[in-house]
Amino acid sequence: MRGFLAVYLRELLIIWHRLPRMLLSFSVSPTLYLVAFGFGLGKNLTVGERPYLEFLVPGVVAASSMMQGFGINVEINVARFYLRIFEEFQAAPISNWSYVLGEILGGVTRAFLSTFVILAITALAGIHLHFGPVFFLGVFLNAFVFASLGVTSAMLIRSHADQALVTNFIITPMVFLGGTFFPVEGLPAWARVPLKLLPLTHASHLIRSAAYGKPVPMVSLLILGALAFGGFFLAYRSVDRARD
């Protein structure tokens, strides 16, 4: 248990030391999305019966929490290849699950911080949505899934350049295609089916339904729960692969 606490506390201390610049950097992308797609392009648009901005905010929360959750891979890479802190963890009498859980929750914490920044910007813009427990459960599961994948990729991929490839070819396309900026339901069936396979599509759906005060979409909730479980298992198994 103390091993997990040590790994997570280290992430929290790093966040604490970097907090002002971190919050500032978390606000850049969401602000740009809201200004460009919300206030700029979509000011007079509606999706269903709601203004586009109300559609966009939960999508941006889903995309941002995904990015920050997955972004733990960069931190781990720096710790592993530049600072070599990973060796300190490997030489310590802690289990793999302690390490993995500590790092994943580090990613989840970053995701929540970015979510709070977006909610603050949203409140300033006068957008009112329902931010209840299911909304935050959606953020948590989404961040957990992608932080698990971030830990896995950091363990398996041995260079910064290859890490960037994963982000460019998998994460960035998902930001645009996972129900963030447009409703997946409006697409033809041939496009809709593959997009429904993306975890972010279900996260966007769950978070948006909660923000609208609609009933919980159980299928998306269960899929995200299963992916979180599977992602943790993958991350757990990948730690041993990082040892030479």
Binding site: R2, A6, V7, L13, E88, A92, P93
Partner: peptide
């Protein structure tokens, strides 16, 4: 030192 101590169960 704190992180190291926790890692080693202190």
């Amino acid at each position: 030192l704190l992180i190291h101590g926790l890692l080693f169960g202190m």
